[in-house]
Design a protein around this nucleic acid. Structure first.
Lengths: 196, 196
DNA sequence: ATGAAACATGAATCAGTATTCATGTATCCA
DNA sequence: TGGATACATGAATACTGATTCATGTTTCAT
């Protein structure tokens, strides 16, 4: 009933990690409401009741997974962007890093999308936070003259949306993803647009 | 048990429509798995069992709602695009029509996004079908010299993703949507990109 | 007008599953 | 090394909700 604290022993820490891993797989595969606690503990090779030693509820576990995705994505993208010499290069590197992340952890990606319904606040916070950093980067680039003037917030959301849709179609739903090719094509449009 | 056929009497047709209307509202508000058949029939002011006279299951009803959204969106966007003198104008008109549709029928929009989980096949079909038409339009425009050369499929998905993200942030999650402004900003990026 | 087909009803059935709890077993510090 | 704390177990609880069905009522072609 009480909100569980973090585990204190080695064994406890290992169990909690097992459950989180299994949850990523099971919820990623079946979806949040279809995934039962029993499925998750079975995947973690532990007893049903053990779940509640570490998590107060299914919802709390879910929130933790969404946050994990947030941290992991930011880390991946930020790392890739850091080395870029200018903003347009950063756009390319960031998009590629995102698509590679989707390829590497499809279950987590799906979980975030499901948060739109299962935990709308966490979902909005996740993307709003991401968009804020994105827009700031664009404004700084604009000040340095690396991108044309324009509304940074609209651009940030538009670019995030592009990345998500490309992730769906050319990574998640594609048998033989060719990330490099997709990134190259998309980047050309990001830089120059459609105008002839 | 058998798959119900379409109703044969006036009364039956009216009942079925009542149930579909109520379902759009209830599933749009609570989400697919949280919305119970009882909620829906209550909204339709009819008895629980009546639902199964018209629909084989909750899933079948859901599929029908997703298809309805598909038809409605296409009609809206296609109508708006038809009058455009060239492709870049068409992009602007299509984006604006889409955002206005999201504003007008948020429940249907939400239902489509939930189909990603509740009925993945319908979801993929919906967007793949849309993308196909989109890509064809871009190829024809490229042939007419109205847009620069580039991979039409990647561009189509990227543009759809942009529209979805802008719909989320600046229509669904915004207290005072300013569609015209968002469209103007986004359209500039679609035409010219970020390059200075 | 009338009876067969169509439709309406809601209690009962059936299948789950989130969460709790009483009863153990492992861990680890004093 | 003992015992207090942390952790493990899975059957039992408590509840929800999709689907069925036996029993009416309405519609409408004849």
């Amino acid at each position: 009933m009480d909100k569980p604290t973090l585990p204190k022993t080695k064994r406890g820490q290992a169990r909690r990690a097992q459950i989180l891993d299994a949850a990523e797989q099971v919820i990623g595969a079946r979806g949040f409401s279809a995934a039962s606690i029993a499925d998750i503990t079975r995947g973690a090779e532990t007893a049903l009741g053990t779940f509640y030693i570490y998590f107060a509820s299914k919802e709390e576990l879910f929130r933790e997974l969404v946050q994990e995705m947030g941290h992991a994505t930011r880390a991946q993208v930020a790392g890739a962007i850091a080395k870029a010499p200018d903003r347009l290069s950063a756009e390319r590197a960031g998009l590629e890093a995102f698509l590679r992340f989707v390829a590497a952890r499809p279950a987590l990606y799906r979980i975030v999308e499901e948060a739109r319904f299962a935990d709308p606040e966490a979902y909005q916070d996740y993307f709003s936070g991401f968009a804020e950093g994105y827009a700031t980067g664009l404004r700084e680039a604009e000040a340095r003259g690396e991108v044309s003037p324009g509304n940074a917030e609209v651009r940030a959301w538009a670019l995030m949306g592009m990345a998500k849709a490309l992730g769906d179609r050319f990574v998640l739903w594609d048998d033989a993803p060719d990330i490099e090719h997709v990134v190259a094509e998309a980047h050309r449009m990001i830089c120059r647009g459609l105008a002839p």
